[in-house]
């Protein structure tokens, strides 16, 4: 069993509204996977289920053989789509908070990333701009030596120069034991760093393939393919 993440028949329904419909897929170690889909296709719900913030109506999630819980949280580093910091803290206090929480937190990496993105560690979080807060949150998540990174819209509010820096950081920190799931709408920005992509439509998987195979097959970029599959 060398799957890092395995979803088997995940369904999530709120009454008559089925958000995820029998979703199954596996992710092996060492992959960077784009989770792509239009608004309301179920990406965030899927991510919440992987992080046990939401219980599926049926089906099972296994992370290195464990259901989401204490054991899985030790190896999963999760970036939610919302900011959740206590904003009275300074960046440094937040970093210490993370260090207390996670054994795999790499302080040196965190300080390097903060300094390269010119973020003042003594600044109070509430004084930071929205984009900078997002960067801080992403830096905290990427500073863990986790096995699975689950990033929900990591670069949406970040300027293009910092975006390049963040993507380079992801490439530079690549570890063949670890995998990354990235949900985003900024497909053209990230598609060259992906191994695979998953297209989600109305709670179902419509495409799960390697991005290079899709390019070869369709003579299209992933961005163009997305626009074609989800044409309104």
């Amino acid at each position: 069993m060398n799957e890092l993440l395995s979803l088997n028949g995940i369904t999530k329904a709120y009454g008559a509204n089925t958000v995820l419909d029998n979703v199954s897929f596996q992710i092996k170690p060492g992959r960077i996977v784009g989770l792509l889909g239009p608004n309301g296709s179920g990406k965030t719900t899927l991510i919440k289920i992987i992080n046990s913030l939401c219980t599926p109506t049926s089906g099972e999630v296994l992370i290195q053989g464990n259901r989401p819980g204490i054991e899985s949280k030790k190896i999963v580093s999760y970036l939610p789509d919302k900011l959740y910091f206590n904003d009275y803290m300074t960046v440094k206090e937040l970093m210490e908070y993370y260090m207390d929480f996670y054994n795999d937190f790499n302080q040196d990496k965190c300080l390097t990333l903060l300094s390269n993105l010119q973020i003042d560690v003594n600044a109070k979080i509430k004084t930071l701009s929205k984009g900078t807060k997002e960067k801080v949150q992403l830096i905290m998540v990427m500073s863990r030596e986790a096995l699975l990174y689950v990033l929900d819209e990591p670069i949406g509010g970040v300027d293009p120069a910092s975006r390049d820096y963040i993507l380079n950081t992801i490439i530079n920190n690549y570890n063949p034991e670890a995998s990354i799931i990235i949900s985003t709408h900024l497909i053209s920005d990230i598609e060259t760093i992906l191994d695979d992509c998953i297209f989600l439509q109305n709670g179902r998987i419509v495409v799960y393939n390697s991005v290079e195979a899709l390019r070869m097959d369709k003579n299209m970029s992933i961005d163009e393919l997305f626009r074609e599959v989800f044409r309104c």
Partner: peptide
């Protein structure tokens, strides 16, 4: 790894 960072591509690619 160096080449992947320079080119901005996935290391497996």
């Amino acid at each position: 790894r160096e080449l992947a960072v320079e080119a901005g591509v996935n290391p497996n690619t």
